[in-house]
Design a protein around this nucleic acid. Structure first.
Lengths: 145, 145
DNA sequence: GTAGATGCAAATTTTTTGCATTTAG
DNA sequence: CTAAATGCAAAAAATTTGCATCTAC
């Protein structure tokens, strides 16, 4: 195992900031926004610029090390590509998010590859609806219109 | 007379701008960004403000008439909720987009509803990869690192 | 020593908001 | 008539860029 948080790609340097970003990703099991990462890092590097985060995320994304996903709130969130493939179910009412650990898309991807001759490298999937609590509230407050 | 592109919801008026937005959605079979709509409408309403588009999209989305989706380029795109449920396959290389008319998620939604007790109202799914042409280019230019 | 990375500030881009005016019903 | 909608301008929020300085290798 590599065991380190280094970006072993020729032409790129392992700065402490970059190493820390990778560490933060490894310590997290949810997708993180640039600001999430920024806040976590500010504690260690008070002079840190948010542009450093964005520039690193750009590199990490282009190298396929992290995956970028833009959620329906308009904010991009990132996660390690090596993290087990996850999808999320988000409550429209209270924003509570639940992980889904089924991903039924592998077989779909294969059949679409066959149909389109694309080389499919990934997908983003987010489900949304109302959680049990908000569902209940909705029902209670009536459902006219 | 009541045009077919009218928003028949109490408290809302059928302005010509709003009617036109609905018409544009009906004429389009791809998701449109606020700017896409703005450009199409400017031709007819040169004084149109983009805030009018955003405000209408907000209302239409909140009424469930259109669906908002934020693509991986960070731009929100909208489509009629009544439009047949579509997903897209986008080429990372050239941005070419292909429609997929399979949506395998209905059954997944049901099983997740059962597991989580959520009331799932929808999902967003986007697939990405390399189209035949770009795939070829990638192979030709080698794949060393 | 040098290419690449960083911090800082300013610029861009997309979306939202305040307000005076106009319009649909 | 009047609540809702619009146009315009300015503000926010997220992200990107230019540049001088710094750091990993």
């Amino acid at each position: 195992m590599l065991g380190k948080n280094d970006l072993n790609i020729e032409g790129y340097k392992n700065t402490k900031q970059r190493t820390k970003i990778l560490q933060i990703f490894k310590d997290s099991n949810i997708p993180l926004s640039a600001e999430d990462i920024f806040i976590r890092m500010k504690e260690y590097y008070p002079l840190l610029a948010i542009s450093t985060i964005y520039r690193n995320l750009e590199i990490l994304t282009s190298k396929g090390i992290v995956i970028k996903n833009i959620f329906n709130d308009g904010i991009a969130r990132y996660e390690l590509a090596s993290t087990n493939h996850r999808h999320h179910l988000k409550c429209i009412g209270c924003n509570m998010t639940v992980d889904i650990d089924a991903c039924p898309l592998k077989s779909l991807e294969h059949s679409i590859e066959a149909q389109t001759d694309f080389d499919i490298s990934g997908h983003s999937l987010e489900l949304y609806g109302y959680c049990p609590k908000c569902k209940k509230k909705n029902t209670e407050s009536g459902s006219s219109n």
